[in-house]
Amino acid sequence: MTKSTKSTFLSLFIILFIGIANARSQSENEKINNLIDQKISYNKKNKNSTVFKIQLYNGNETEAYKIKEDFNTSFPDYHAEVVYDKPEWKTQVNKFKTRLDADRVAIIIKEEFTAAIVLEDKI
């Protein structure tokens, strides 16, 4: 085998090796992307995520809405909502992704709404 033949053979081998490695890499990337898509689809269908809420009040409807208005006036950066959970009305604040985030905000809120508590909820 001549030197130029060896060089050509080596060049072809390197190109073939790079092509195979690239195809394998693309195949693995496609598998990863497919798994990510499956996880996103699963999460949309099975909403079992945990969130944390700060509950300000639990009782009658009139008081629940009054506390919501008072809260929205005092803390415009947060969103309070009134929820009816048979047989009681609840005034709750936001849906926090972590307990730590909810606890941090609860400390501030408790200065004005002393009965505020952090609750874990599934959505």
Rank of each mutant, 00 (worst) to 15 (best):
L119H: 01
I40W: 00
S7D: 06
K95V: 02
T91D: 02
T50H: 05
D103S: 15
N60D: 09
Y65M: 04
E111M: 15
K110R: 15
I15P: 02
F13R: 11
Y42K: 14
I32G: 06
A21V: 08
E28F: 05
V93H: 02
Q38V: 13
F96L: 09
K110H: 00
K90G: 00
D85Y: 09
E63N: 13
V51Q: 05
K39Y: 05
K53P: 01
D85E: 12
G59F: 02
D121T: 15
K97Y: 00
S49N: 12
D85C: 01
I14D: 00
K122H: 04
D70T: 12
E81H: 08
Q92E: 12
N46K: 13
I108P: 03
P76W: 05
I18D: 03
Y78Q: 11
M1D: 06
I54C: 04
Q92V: 15
P76A: 09
W89K: 04
L16S: 13
I109G: 02
K95G: 00
S4K: 13
K6E: 08
I67C: 01
S25C: 07
K6M: 13
A21W: 04
K110I: 06
T98Q: 09
I14H: 02
M1T: 07
V83G: 02
K66H: 04
F96E: 01
I40E: 05
F17L: 15
K3E: 10
N94F: 00
T50Y: 09
N43A: 11
M1V: 12
R24F: 05
E112L: 15
L16T: 14
S74G: 03
S25A: 11
D77E: 14
S11I: 13
N72C: 05
F75D: 03
I15D: 07
V118P: 03
L119C: 07
I15M: 10
S74R: 11
K39D: 03
D121G: 06
Y65K: 08
F71P: 03
K86I: 08
I123R: 07
T98Y: 07
D77I: 11
F96A: 05
L100Y: 04
K44A: 06
K31N: 10
L119K: 15
N72V: 08
D103I: 15
F52K: 03
I123P: 00
N34P: 01
D85N: 11
D85M: 13
K95P: 00
K3C: 09
E111W: 00
N94R: 05
K68W: 01
F71N: 04
Y78H: 11
Q26S: 08
L16V: 15
K95M: 08
K44Q: 09
K86M: 08
K90R: 12
I20A: 14
I32P: 02
L56R: 03
N72K: 14
F52W: 10
A80P: 01
R24N: 14
E88S: 10
N72Q: 12
T62S: 09
H79F: 10
F13D: 10
A115L: 14
R24E: 07
L119T: 14
L10K: 09
T8Q: 09
S49K: 13
F9Y: 08
Y78F: 14
K95A: 05
F71I: 06
E63P: 00
S4P: 02
D85P: 03
D77V: 12
Q38Y: 00
E112H: 08
F9R: 14
E30L: 14
F71R: 01
A23S: 12
V105M: 10
F17E: 07
P87L: 03
G19P: 04
K90W: 03
K47T: 05
D85W: 07
D101F: 04
K31C: 03
T8Y: 02
